[in-house]
């Protein structure tokens, strides 16, 4: 469903992605790993349509449609979801109000009526239970004063509410305590189906024990330098990235 072809992107004239190729099919889980600054978040942002980054070459396709001309919200309406590495604070806007707006905007774009308040409440209840989120939390201002872990959990809650086709989770595991990690991972697993796909950006094998990836890719210097099965992650955990860097330098 998501196809990335020879993607190059730069910011302020500095090239960060240097030819990424990746195909994600329905039902798959992909993990992307790689050292700090290798371009993982940049890749996620480019897929989501952040204008700060200039795509200089290549393309991103969703269901065969080139996304180049599609706005960030248009991409979201088509079922793309990005869980931010650093979720943004919006003072005065409650989580509930925000998610309600997001859902209804997507529905509107897809020619649907607003979701009836009753259904909305029901869904909020279900999903917050799934992720073991205290309802009080949902009336607080979006991400304002949230702890690191709370922010991440809130991102996954929004994902659960929006039911995306392709979800990119950018280091959603970092900042979560052990229990939270399990809860979030379970949540993601429950939301997974043969019709959707998940891309996990992570530094830790730990998460991949809960959400088992079909493929693991290593990003280095803006390129995927190695792809493999879930064992690759184990190998990385053991040896670090140096051996790969050396291998690719040759």
């Amino acid at each position: 469903m998501l196809k990335i072809k020879d993607l190059h992107a730069s910011v302020e004239g500095k090239e960060i992605l240097r030819g990424i190729n990746l195909e994600v099919k329905a039902g798959e889980v992909h993990a992307i790993m790689g050292p700090n600054g290798s371009g993982k978040s940049t890749l996620a942002s480019v897929i989501a349509g952040k204008e700060e980054f200039e795509v200089t070459q290549g393309s991103v396709e969703l269901y065969g449609e080139d996304l180049e001309e599609v706005s960030p919200e248009g991409r979201a309406h088509k079922g793309l979801f990005l869980s931010f590495q650093y979720p943004i604070e919006i003072p005065g806007v409650s989580v509930t109000n925000f998610i309600k707006t997001a859902i209804n905007e997507s529905r509107k774009a897809n020619g649907l009526e607003d979701m009836p308040a009753k259904d909305m409440l029901k869904m909020i209840r279900e999903k917050s239970e799934l992720l073991e989120i205290d309802r009080k939390f949902l009336s607080r201002s979006l991400n304002e004063g949230f702890s690191g872990g709370e922010k991440k959990r809130n991102e996954v809650f929004q994902m659960a509410m929006l039911e995306p086709k392709v979800a990119i989770l950018d280091e959603t595991d970092s900042g979560l305590d052990i229990d939270a990690l399990r809860i979030v991972a379970n949540g993601v697993n429950k939301l997974k189906s043969k019709d959707n796909a998940v891309i996990l950006i992570t530094h830790y094998q730990r998460l991949l024990e809960y959400i088992v990836p079909d493929f693991v890719h290593v990003l280095h210097n803006g390129k995927i330098v190695k792809s493999g099965g879930k064992d690759l992650a184990l190998q990385l955990e053991e040896k670090g990235y140096d051996w790969l860097k050396q291998e690719t330098a040759v």
């Binding site: 349509g49 919200e73 979201a76 997001a102 905007e105």
Partner: peptide, 9 residues
Amino acid sequence: FYCNQRGIS
């Protein structure tokens, strides 16, 4: 951008 990503214009 955060709002856009969640489908909000």
